[in-house]
Every structure is written in C-alpha cells, then in structure tokens.
Write a protein that binds this DNA or RNA. Structure first.
Lengths: 353, 353
DNA sequence: ACACCTTGCTTAAACGTTTAAACAAAGTAC
DNA sequence: GTACTTTGTTTAAACGTTTAAGCAAGGTGT
C-alpha cells in the first residue's frame, strides 16, 4: 500500500519523457517504423505517418537529440569563440551567424576568450568535448601559438576564422580589408587638410593590426607624406592605453594634426584626454577610430570610424560552415572572403564643410 | 594502385577517433574496466589505472560526451536566455555564470531573445531540444504569457530567472531591489536640491519596471513631494524613445529640474536632446540613468546610474542552478535573492559639491 | 577446512535513436 | 503460374558510454 502510493507520486512528478518506443507501443508498430515516419521516409505509408504524428503529439514526444547525435555522429552544434563579450562588433557578428545557422537546424555554443590565449585553449577543449560539428572563431590578441587550432584541423572538424585570422593556418577566413581601410582613412584625413597623421596601432603580430599599420605607411607614401617614427605607436588599444598614447603624442615638439586609432575604445580614451586638455577636436587634432562601436555616435564630438559589416561577416562565416557540412568529403578550396569596409564620417574628423 | 593511394589519403585525413573500446583492446581488458579506470573507481587497481591513462594519452583518446550524456541522462549543458546581446549588463552576467559553471564541468549554450516573445519561445524549444540540464533566463520585455516557461517547469528542468522575472512563475529568481533603487535615486536628487523629479519608466507590466515606478512614487511621498502625472511617463526605453520622452517633458509649462530614466540607453537619448537644446546638465536639469552601462562614464557629462552588480547576479544564478543539480529530488525551497544596488554618482547629477 | 570477505575484473544490458538488411504481402509482367 | 518488383514494415545492430550484477582468485578468521 505504501509502496504503491510512492510509486504513484513518482508517476506524477517525474512524468517520464516519451520516446519513439512509447509511440511504437501505442500503435503496435516497430520503433524503426516510427523513426522513419517522423522523418517522412517515403517507404512509410501516409496512414502510418499520420497516426505516428498524432500519437507523438498526444504523448508530447520530443526527440532525444543526444541519442540521434550519437547515432548519426553529428551534434548539430556549432562552437563559436569570440575574444570579447562586450564589443558590439562581435555580438553583432554572432547574432547574424545564429540567424543563418538556426534556420538550418544548427545551434550555437558561445564561448569567450577575453583576449587570453589560455582561455582560448580551454574554449577549444570545451567545444571539442561537446562534439560540435564545427568551430567559428576569432583569435585572441595574445594568440601566436597555433597548436590548438591545428588540433581542430587534425580532428577533421571544420574551422572558420573571422576578423582575427592567421595566414599560416590554412583555413577559411572572413574579414574586412584592413589594409585598404587604412588607405581610406588616410585619404579622408588628407582631404580634410591634415598633414601630420599619427597612428595608434595594435600589436604588430596580430594580422589585422599589422595590415592596418602597413596600410597606414603605404597610404602616407602615396600622399607624399613622410613617415615619422614618433607618430606611429603600438598599443594594447584599451581605453586606458589610448589615453597613454595620446599623451605621448601631445608631448612631441611637433604635434600631429590628426590621429588614426586602430580601435574605437582607444580612440575614446584619446578623446577624453583631448577634451580634458581643451584641445579642439577636430580643429586642432582630428580623430578617427576603427570598428564603428555604437558609442562612437554617442559621445561628443562623435567619432569617425570604420564600419566592419558585422552582419555580413557573420552571415558569410555561417554559410561557409554550412558548405562544409554539405560536402564534407570533398576537399574544399580555401575560402578567403575579404569585404570592403566603409568609413562613417562623424564630427571628430569633419574639418571642412 | 590508384585505389590504394586514395585509401591511404583517407587514413591520413580522417584519423578515426579512439574510443574506450580501443583502449580496452590494447590492454586486453574490458571496456567497462577502462571506463571505471578513467573515473578513478576504487575497484580498479592502480596498475590498471596507470596503464589505461597512458594508453588513453597515446591514442589521443577523448571521451564522447554525447554517449555519456545519453547514458547518464545528463548533458552537462546549461541554457541561457538573455534579452539582448549588446548590453553590458547581460554579457557581464553571462560571463560570470560561465566562470562558475565551467569550473563544475558545465558548458553554456547562449541564446538571445532580442526582446521578442516569439524568439524567446524558439529559444526555449532549442534549449529543450539540446537536452540542457537547466535554463537560466531573463525575460523579454514583451513576455506576458508564461506558458512556455511553465513548459520548462513541467519537464522537471530547473529554471532560474534573473533580472527580469515574474512572481507568478514559482521559480528561483536573482535580481536587484528595483523598488529600493528608485528610493536611492530620488533621495540623491532631493539631496541635490531637486524639487520636480520626473521619471521616464519602462512598461508597467514588466515587474522590474513596475517596481521602479512604485519606488519612485513612494519615494516622492516620503520626501513630501507631490506626484504629478505629467512627470511620470511610460517608455520603451530605447535611445530614440528617450529622445521623444524628454522632448515631451521639455514642452511642459512647468519643466522638471531632474529626470530619472529607467534605462541608460533612454537616458543617453535624453542627454543628447538636452545638449542639442543647450539645456545645462545638471544645472538646469539633473539626469540619472539605470544600469551603469560603460558608456555612462564615457559621455559628457557622464551619467549618474545604478550599478546592478552583474557579476554577483551571474554568480548567484549559476550557484542556484548547481544546488538544484546536487539534490534534484528534494523539493527545494524557493530561492529569491534580491541584491542591493549601488548608485554611481557622476556629473549628470552632481549639483552640489 | 570451511565460510566469508575483498579485490579486480568481466558480462551484459541500457540510454534513444538510426539504418542496413531482411522479409512478407501484394502487385505486375509474361 | 512463375518470376520479379514494389510497398510497407520488422529485425537487429550500431553509436560510445555507464553501471548493476556476477564471478573468479586470493585472503582472513575460526
């Protein structure tokens, strides 16, 4: 009696999930038939299919993803590694990936490296452990050693890099043309009448920052401006370091009349200092950032910046992954997609007009 | 000859993952023994354990998470639903959850509702489909219907809400004391000498915004200030609507001398309009936001705001989930954790001193 | 010398699904 | 009426792991 009662309680609480087998029992057919019916197999009669679907609904059946993933050797999960959580660029990229992938039945597992190499390795382990079908990543600033990324490759799991990539890793890549972006910026500043254009750049060993630096140097040459070493600084590109580096520039005998900063955050730091010192922007010093973070439009003066087409990057990265899934055996030709960036001109660099 | 070549290539590329069985074969023991050895079962000899670990390393063995999850009926995945990607608050909360959960062997699946009820329902389906062990969510502004959240509950999956919760759903909740926060803000403004304090609030049907409104009303009363209907507005709290609502306030015969906005974003919109109209902040109108988004410190004047202790909220939510996992059968007493918020006073409301 | 415990393994079933192969029944062709 | 195809299903194995139950060999106590 007591036993029976506790059993009843169990029944009420636990509400065991129904399986394909339960459906099969109700209809007196085999589980295999149910599975096929649910997948609309042509060899199953319409009558059975209808019945199965009905019973499935009645029993509140939901397929067990783990079981099917195990059996099929495919988890329908895509791992994402982004260097930062709080950047608008990355969250926007990820959101657009999510949209594309969800439509095709894939789900996303997000991880963040916080620009740390160690965290990045942990993330990769986590994702491999979770049996993701592919990894879409943007590398941390710190990352130089590529062993962990090669680990992904040797496991035969598709790897797609975006924004922060590496040429040495032979994998698909989607990003904007950093080299050309620097050209666009320098040209814009020259057009505004600037003659001494400084560049607060990122670490040279990160490809994108290196490209921006090269673009800056070459663009100066094209416009017949001399490259002055004191005007080219390497920075961590944090807000704080933006402050430091602009102060360094302001100490120069011969100050620049424009500063191109390789990140909006560092540009913001620079702007804060300029305002504190009552240096007029853009009249005394023009300022250009990179990334088109929303705050660039919010501060005063608003900051001219480069729009990196985050939605497009996310979409393309997701699509590249999907292509890999379609034809996994065929050795894909490498996909390197480089988008043109767009300069969004705002108050911080609008001297003329 | 050709065939052999292609087979060799295949061998090199595909590198079949090794399983527990492979280890067992190498050592001539049963797969069960290997499994136990890897889990440090006391019934396995140290000699065998060492051998197993060595072979596992040699074969580059990695456990198949899907298989063990299926067998154990536990995925070690936690689903997260956040209303927005780009808010510092939410990304910071999630990051702190991630930290706590990763340490205990759980991984996170992130989803975003973008404040849409429909998307939220999709997210819930996605997470249930992925067989998460629990869901930690913050509700979209739109969400009124609770059917989908009840669906989670009836499945017996732990559900923990943070920030945006609902009293009617009988689930764990972690958030800050919105009612009290309004008190703190009103007191601060009164201390600064303000007499006509307006409130641009959120939608009344969302609990947190309702609490802020109630707090505002009660605080006014406490400080013997009259509640004037024209000073209490309901808003979507976007930047754009912040602009609209401040304009509405500026049109009043008798303008407010302070505005408390229930979101930093709307506060920013308001600030933009005030600056455009050359109304001095805080001298003519003091401004207070909510959320302590990073940009509140970046704009000029910087915006006074409420710090919501995102790290703490994330940590507590994660810990609450872990407690559920520890004792799943025992009917837990409901965990409602309400943290005190902290006012970060900045330029936009610093009239005295 | 007997019962009994411990140690260290093995066996076998189970988790829920998918799928290749088999098969029965009915239909078609000649 | 025999051979072959089609239709609609079943059977059984498989995915990789975990775990309850079993069992053999050796040790301990009396």
């Amino acid at each position: 009696m007591l036993k029976r009662l506790s059993k009843d309680i169990k029944k009420i609480n636990i509400k065991k999930k129904s399986t394909i087998k339960d459906i099969a029992n109700v209809l007196n057919i085999s589980p295999a038939a149910v599975s096929k019916a649910l997948h609309d197999d042509p060899r199953i009669s319409d009558k059975t299919k209808k019945a199965v679907r009905q019973v499935a609904k009645n029993l509140n059946y939901h397929p067990n993803h783990l079981a099917s993933a195990l059996r099929k050797g495919k988890s329908n999960l895509v791992g994402i590694i982004a260097p930062r959580t709080n950047s608008h660029f990355f969250s926007s990229v990820v959101q657009s990936m999510e949209e594309v992938l969800n439509k095709k039945g894939y789900n996303i597992i997000m991880t963040h490296s916080n620009e740390s190499y160690k965290k990045e390795c942990d993330n990769i382990d986590t994702l491999l452990f979770t049996q993701v079908d592919g990894i879409i990543a943007s590398m941390a600033n710190e990352t130089i050693n590529l062993d962990y990324y090669n680990k992904i490759k040797t496991k035969g799991i598709p790897l797609i890099l975006f924004d922060r990539g590496e040429n040495d890793l032979n994998v698909d890549y989607i990003g904007i043309d950093d080299y050309k972006s620097s050209h666009i910026i320098v040209k814009h500043l020259v057009d505004q009448g600037c003659k001494r254009i400084a560049h607060i750049g990122g670490y040279k060993h990160t490809r994108i920052f290196n490209n921006r630096i090269r673009g800056y140097i070459d663009a100066l040459r094209e416009h017949h401006l001399p490259l002055e070493e004191e005007l080219l600084l390497e920075s961590s590109l944090s807000i704080e370091d933006g402050r430091n580096k602009i102060e360094q520039l302001l100490k120069l005998k011969h100050r620049p009349d424009a500063v191109y900063v390789a990140s909006d955050y560092a540009a913001l730091g620079a702007l804060q200092v300029l305002k504190e010192k009552n240096i007029r922007v853009p009249e005394d010093i023009a300022l250009v950032g990179f990334g088109n973070e929303p705050f660039t439009a919010m501060v005063t003066p608003s900051i001219t910046s480069i729009n990196q087409h985050s939605e497009e990057i996310g979409k393309l990265a997701a699509q590249t992954f999907l292509e890999h899934m379609k034809s996994p055996t065929i050795k894909q030709s490498l996909n390197k997609k480089i988008l043109d960036a767009e300069l969004v001109i705002r108050e911080s660099s609008k001297i003329k007009g």
